[in-house]
Design a protein around this nucleic acid. Structure first.
Lengths: 345, 345
DNA sequence: AATTAGCACTCGAAGCTAGTGAGTGCTAAC
DNA sequence: GTTAGCACTCACTAGCTTCGAGTGCTAATT
């Protein structure tokens, strides 16, 4: 059997209608809904065909039809083909005057969730390699040193350490010079024993301070790349969709959203793909995350200069407004990049 | 009528039992539960009295009794009086080798939630006054300066700014000295026009850099004190308690937990009180937060040196294990303080 | 040959009823 | 003062009926 034009029209009508109401949709409804009027009987025949072809499903014998995963898939693929005509304005405002990446990401997640009425998640950036750009030691207290580490991409980390020996201002200055001249441009893996030995030698009496500092730096960087931060927002939006707010499922989904470890897979999987736009749509069972098998998930990769990449995800019911979400994500992606190129700091 | 010993015993038995089961408890149950055996009829009479006195409630005519808010209140007040005999071991391990306050707080919230099986929240510290301790400018790029600001309590903030003029290393050094000598020990309010004017004068040709830096510093500090960070964890634990997981209420409660603004009140209210231990128990309607009127909320203030204070909260059903939660909170409070005194950085 | 009207049929949802049992309150006996 | 006994209450459940949206099929129409 073939998907002729009429079948497509009807299929789309079913999906759209179901998106609005969340209720199974019957033949009469479609008959009224579609402009070129076919009678409900005709629609019924077509629907019967569509069901046979696997695009729609009857939840029970005497109910209307709802789209199957395959049906949604068809619909989404159609939308994806269409060019995004308008890269709308959207809240450019939001992404400005933000001083810390973390804070932007949180706000962005919130914004997305509020805008779409679905749950949003956003992963912190994953740095490809952490090259050291700059290290600075300063004295903040008699026995305390502040280590400021700047990584490529202007990622800044602070640590305060206790030192148990006297260091004069001049020595501190020398240590700074020593650290920067030796470590500049190295990734963390490249700081091997040879480098350390050389530095300790040059540092003279303060060799153990070098040790201390390097350990702290290593730990800070490792800690950062180890547990990828993931921010979520609007998780409770799922209560707006009866088909998801069944107690058992809602609980599972929400706790998955809370325990970010389980989301890693989603974020990583999506980063792997990299096809074209970097947008992925997972419908129902297609999702890599178990608890989301009754949802649809749309992920998009953002990128902002210097190869810093992360992932944004929107989680909603299968009948989510794919069109809107896709458009929103496309917009955000471009804007995020632009915003950060503008005031990179 | 008076609360004699038998009434107290029965009331406690009712509350304990209800905590375990979550079901209304009847006279026969208590008759079996209590060691010194009174018959169910006697218990019934006493229960009738207790109900009249307002300590227990009958959800409907032919059901057992459940504790009223007043009943819980009585129970909690009793517990609060008892000295905490054992300041148990608990995971001291957890609070170690942590480099950033934020990360500790997040982990702590998670730990508390997992330990208690209730929802946990923890507010970031509120600094009484933000005195500047140390400022450092460093060049990270040709046209970019890194501003590191250390506030009292070793709170560190970084900002990167673009400068549109040439600054030599020596000038940078001088600027650093200038900034520190003028600003050290001042709160943000104390940096007034007079101070700024004086500094600009001393800075000579680089007056506008001073401007730039001060603006950034001001903004960073303001941003930090403005929106108090609140971390939550274990929100989905509420699904473990049927009386809370009704769809409507659960949704409200969860979204309250998500929108941290609404929690401010809770955190602030609690900080205000300051009576003795700094532990507050809100039962049902006593709670300042609307969405928690079916829960009990226990808040505790933590404090770690230098007057840095924040609040921890546990949110659970009214039949929460008050004893355990109180003990846990007490332990955490002492340990948190100790841990930070130990490796304050 | 395609479309449509009409009708019998299906089956979940909502409403109703009777039965069940945990739990009470009261009274009278101990 | 305590307890046994009993009538009574009322949420909860299971089974039943009704209702209606929606289907599939057949026969009539275009």
């Amino acid at each position: 059997m073939e998907l002729d034009e009429r079948k497509v029209t009807i299929l789309k009508a079913i999906i759209k209608n179901y998106m609005d109401t969340g209720e199974p949709v019957g033949s009469r409804t479609i008959s009224k809904y579609v402009e070129s009027r076919w009678s409900s009987a005709t629609i019924r025949n077509e629907m019967s065909d569509l069901e046979e072809m696997g695009y729609i499903i009857q939840p029970h014998t005497s109910a209307g039809r709802i789209p199957s995963d395959k049906g949604y898939r068809f619909y989404v693929d159609q939308i994806m083909q269409e060019k995004d005509s308008e890269v709308a304005e959207i809240q450019e405002l939001m992404i400005q005057r933000v001083d810390r990446l973390e804070s932007v990401l949180k706000k962005l997640a919130k914004l997305l969730a509020r805008d779409t009425n679905y749950a949003a998640l956003i992963s912190g950036p994953r740095y490809h390699e952490n090259k050291l750009k700059f290290i600075q030691l300063s004295r903040v207290d008699a026995a305390k040193l502040l280590i400021v580490t700047v990584l490529e991409g202007n990622l800044i980390k602070n640590t305060i350490v206790d030192v148990h020996e006297e260091i004069s201002d001049e020595e501190l200055l020398n240590l700074n010079i020593l650290l920067n001249s030796n470590l500049n441009g190295l990734t963390i893996e490249e700081i091997n024993l040879a480098v350390i030995a050389r530095m300790k030698e040059q540092a003279g009496s303060h060799g153990n301070v070098v040790d201390l500092v390097l350990n702290q730096v290593a730990e800070v960087i490792r800690a950062d790349s180890e547990d990828l931060q993931i921010y979520t927002s609007g998780a409770t939006n799922i209560f707006k969709y009866p088909e998801l707010s069944d107690n058992q499922k809602a609980s599972e989904l929400l706790s998955t959203l809370e325990h970010t470890e389980e989301l890693q897979e989603l974020v990583n999987g999506s980063l792997g793909e990299e096809k074209g736009t970097g947008i992925q749509v997972y419908i129902g069972e297609e999702s890599p995350v178990q608890a989301m098998r009754d949802c649809s998930v749309i992920t998009a990769n953002y990128e902002m200069g210097e190869g810093i990449r992360g992932t944004i995800g929107i989680i909603g019911p299968k009948r989510m407004d794919y069109e809107k979400v896709l458009k929103t994500l496309r917009t955000v992606m471009t804007q995020l990049d632009a915003a950060f190129k503008k005031e990179e700091r």
